[in-house]
Design a protein around this nucleic acid. Structure first.
Length: 849
RNA sequence: GGGCGUUUAGCUCAGCUGGAAGAGCGCUUCCCUUACAAGGAAGAGGUCGGCGGUUCGAGCCCGUCAACGCCCACCA
């Protein structure tokens, strides 16, 4: 039913806000983190989108002016890689096509295969406004990107400089810090002697090949071992070059030999040392990672060059100690896994400090709140320590940098409506994909134009996202939003955890523990999949999911289905409820429990405690509604008359309310059941339940508790005595007259399977409960076979324990106690066991055969 | 190297401001009772990671140790 229902909702326009904001309605806007155009729905999306959908659907039912805007990110490197791989199959590279043709090809790819995830979002039930779908490369959004760049440039917040950046030799582009993943790698620390005799110094390195680019050696200024060498020159092996020894505070005298080889062209620290001491930066690796230094290594790949350089050094007797295993952290390209190479290169940067300061301030002064609050700390860690952001990428897929260069080396940044001077050429690089993502909360609404949507829907109310992207994405939206519109882009950032497997491990393809939400939707249904994830979605904490949970969620949906079916078969209707005085105690009880449920569910939702809300609803529906109320309703329904009419109304009402409460979590099942129950158009646009729809009734609650205790006591007695569930017991309920349970004797008898006492009744067992005594005639009622089996089992257990007494004492006690004590203890245990055996045996003997 | 988090029943996890230990799954026993066997009824199972402290009272607060996990990072 899922597909047609979703289509019905879209066709009816439920997810699209009214053309004009309804008078008096407050806005509720949620920012969808735009998935990559190459993406496919994974379990993390499923959790995140479900959580967002819950919040949005509830607000919509509460009659907020609600917008959830969908769209996709062009995902620069990721997408370009996909298309490049496709071209490779045809034996082509992007250079064979040329820039224009290649970009065309990417657009064709997008039209044919991109955006698969949008269909998957429909499937998941995301109640997004498809009429406002956006893509980061749409003309409007590109205009926003250009405008933003233009403004930042003229505010001196964007600059171009030669810096050491992370370079991916496979993608052949610069990367920002966040596109690099650090991983511990086992390497070797190699000690090399530079210079000779008194004029020599030993340095340590893990990247031997970079020595080809060394232009100095640095030591700590206070290091006595090397003081005499500072200012001198040593010979760089294999090259014959002389390089100076400099003194620099950044050197740790306790690490390695206390002397550092300085490679300003390929190491960020070394670059800074080089700047301080006027050491030139040599580039010895090209953009593919091949050696460019003249000599025998020219053209070798960096990983071929490393052993080759070591071998050559060895031959010259330059390797001092044996190479030592050394674990250190190495950066990898987050897109392709290639080891990144630090490389000096001319790139564009955003000057982050002033923007990040504002972004931090907005959270510090409470304009934007984190839920849970602790998550703000992670955010501060990030915004307070951000480096300048490298935004240029040597790619073709993306927003081209809006800078033009003149014939004499001038540069200009015209605005989106200005023309660059004739004959000038545009920068060939594109912008980091996160640059446009950072504008998402307002570029999607028409900024920089002063559109109606922008006024109506900015800033947004809440952002719901996993903590894994707080840093790069959230921080960037905050910086840009505050810069462009003077207000942070959202009032609340609600953080969800990551989805993990049953062992709490992160899901990854290599670990083979990935759960595919699409497969779950096939096997358990979309609603069960959503419920499974949401039942674990405590704010900010990771969710461990498993098949068991999914099966449990499916069972819940099924339970709800069957309960509603039962209600409809018995004529449940939604209508005006009779006054409480006319209702039975169970009717008043369930209405009272409903009030409590509405109140608690609402409170939990309000605080993003979706898991708690689900739990409360689960408990109410299953334990109270199905296990007790439905059972208690069967009597009145069968008896007919006013009782039955009232019960039908109460049942219809309770289901009406509980289905509306559940709708945000399990939209499809609730839509089907609620429309069947009410005959109304759709639960999507039904009003959110209010407290008025329940009736608190402490007296009914306590009375029904008594009734439950009576039934449960009898059931326990039956179970313990081995009475078959099907067998009815003759019983007298003495003292029930005048008790609160009096009107429900019939219900109690039905639920506990008790018959009226007949002639010759004899009271064999008495169960006192709240002033009522249930007297049961045991004649012929007890299943002595079952009782005998039970006693025999217990007896066997005690005999076994007796046999183990000696062994247990050996293990546990013998060493630490005096032998006489041990013997005493053993005798005591044997005595206790024998008493128990005798007791059980005599009970067994006393049973009728 | 820095920061954060977790540790409660066999498994996965709740437990709000300290006031008599909870759920789901699994397990045991019985039951196809006309909404539901993807179900019903009744049970077993925990020294709340260790140690120390505060308190009339600690799963919850403080200290400390341990194990596990995550994030950040320009340690040659």
């Amino acid at each position: 039913m899922e597909g047609p229902l979703y289509q019905k909702w879209v066709d009816a326009g439920y997810f699209t806000p009214a053309p004009e904001p309804p008078p008096g309605a407050e806005q509720f806007v949620i920012v969808l983190p735009p998935p990559n155009v190459t993406g496919s729905l994974h379990i993390g999306h499923a959790l995140n989108h479900s959580a967002q959908d819950v919040v949005v659907r509830r607000r919509r039912m509460q009659r907020y002016d609600t917008l959830w805007l969908p769209g996709m990110d062009h995902a620069g490197i990721a997408t370009q890689n996909v298309v490049e791989r496709e071209l490779a199959k045809e034996g082509l590279s992007r250079h064979d096509l040329g820039r224009e043709k290649f970009v065309e090809r990417v657009w064709e790819w997008k039209a044919a295969f991109g955006g698969e995830i949008l269909g998957q979002m429909r499937r998941l039930g995301d109640s997004v406004d498809w009429t406002r779908e956006r893509f980061t490369l749409d003309p409007g959004l590109s205009r926003a990107v250009h405008t933003m760049f233009h403004r930042l440039y003229h505010d001196n917040l964007i600059y171009r400089a030669e810096r050491i950046i992370h370079w991916c030799p496979r993608c052949m582009t610069a990367l920002s810090d966040i596109e690099v993943e650090h991983e511990d790698v086992d390497g070797e620390l190699i000690s090399i002697r530079y210079g000779s005799g008194d004029h020599s110094i030993v340095v340590a390195t893990t990247r031997a090949e970079t020595m080809l680019g060394d232009t100095g050696v640095a030591v700590h200024p206070d290091d006595e071992r090397y003081r005499h060498l500072v200012g001198q020159q040593v010979e760089l092996p294999l090259t014959g070059r002389l390089i100076p020894i400099v003194a620099d505070d950044s050197v740790d005298p306790d690490f390695g030999t206390g002397a550092v080889k300085v490679t300003p062209g390929h190491d960020p620290n070394d670059f800074e040392i080089g700047q301080r001491h006027g050491l030139p930066a040599l580039i010895v690796l090209d953009e593919r990672g091949n050696v460019t230094a003249p000599g025998p290594f020219l053209g070798l790949d960096r990983f071929e060059a490393r052993p080759a350089v070591v071998a050559a050094l060895k031959e010259e007797g330059r390797i001092v100690a044996e190479k030592r295993p050394y674990t250190h952290s190495v950066g990898h390209c987050s897109r392709c896994g290639t080891v990144v190479e630090p490389r000096l290169s001319l790139q564009w940067f955003v000057k982050v400090e002033p923007l990040a300061r504002e972004a931090g301030q907005a959270v510090r002064d409470g304009r934007t709140k984190f839920v849970p609050e602790d998550m703000a700390r992670r955010y501060f860690d990030w915004v307070d320590n951000m480096h300048d952001w490298c935004i240029s990428r040597q790619l073709w897929w993306g927003h081209r940098i809006p800078i033009w260069y003149g014939p004499n080396g001038e540069q200009a940044c015209p605005g989106p409506d200005e023309k660059p001077p004739d004959g000038w050429t545009q920068d060939v690089d594109v912008l980091d994909t996160w640059f446009s993502s950072g504008l998402w909360p307002f570029s999607t609404l028409g900024w920089p134009e002063d559109t109606a949507d922008l006024g109506r829907f900015y800033p947004s109310t809440v952002l719901i996202t996993g903590y894994d992207i707080i840093f790069f994405w959230v921080a960037r939206m905050m910086m840009f939003g505050i810069y462009a519109l003077k207000r942070p882009p959202f009032a609340t950032v609600s953080v969800t955890g990551l989805v993990r497997d049953q062992g709490g491990k992160k899901m990854s393809k290599s670990a083979g523990n990935v759960i595919d939400p699409l497969e779950w939707m096939d096997r358990y249904g979309t609603d069960a999949t959503r419920l499974t994830l949401l039942r674990g979605a405590h704010p900010g904490t990771d969710v461990s999911v498993s098949e068991d949970w999914a099966a449990g969620s499916r069972a819940f949906c099924n339970k709800l289905w069957n309960a509603t079916r039962f209600a409809l078969l018995n004529g449940a209707v939604v209508g005006e409820l009779p006054p409480s005085e006319e209702l039975s105690t169970p009717d008043r009880w369930i209405l009272s429990r409903l009030t409590a449920t509405v109140a608690e569910v609402d409170r939990r939702y309000e605080q993003f405690e979706i898991a708690r809300a689900c739990e409360v609803l689960y408990r109410f529906t299953w334990d109270e509604l199905c296990d007790w109320y439905l059972e208690l309703a069967k009597g009145p329904l069968a008896r007919g008359g006013v009782e039955a009419a009232n019960t039908r109304l109460v049942l219809g009402h309770v289901l009406d309310v509980v289905l509306r409460l559940l709708h945000p979590v399990i939209p499809y099942v609730t839509e089907t059941l609620w429309t069947a129950l009410t005959g109304a158009e759709s639960v999507v646009i039904a009003p959110w339940p209010s407290l008025d729809e329940g009736r608190p009734d402490p007296v009914a609650e306590s009375d029904v508790l008594t009734l439950m205790r009576l039934v449960t006591e009898v059931r326990r007695f039956r179970s313990e005595q081995g009475v078959k569930p099907g067998r009815k017991l003759a019983a007298r309920l003495s003292g029930i007259k005048g008790s609160v349970a009096a009107p429900y004797e019939a219900e109690i008898r039905a639920l506990a399977r008790l018959e009226l006492p007949g002639p010759g009744f004899s009271s064999g067992a008495q169960l006192p409960v709240d002033g009522v005594v249930v007297e049961i005639d045991l004649a012929g009622a007890v299943d002595y076979v079952a009782e005998r089996k039970r006693l025999e089992r217990d007896l066997g257990q005690v005999v076994k324990e007796l046999a183990q007494v000696t062994a247990k004492l050996d293990n546990d006690q013998f060493k630490s106690r005096a032998p006489s004590e041990v013997v005493d203890e053993m005798r005591a245990r044997q005595a206790r066991a024998n008493i128990e055996i005798n007791r059980l045996q005599s009970q067994l003997d006393g049973l009728p055969s």
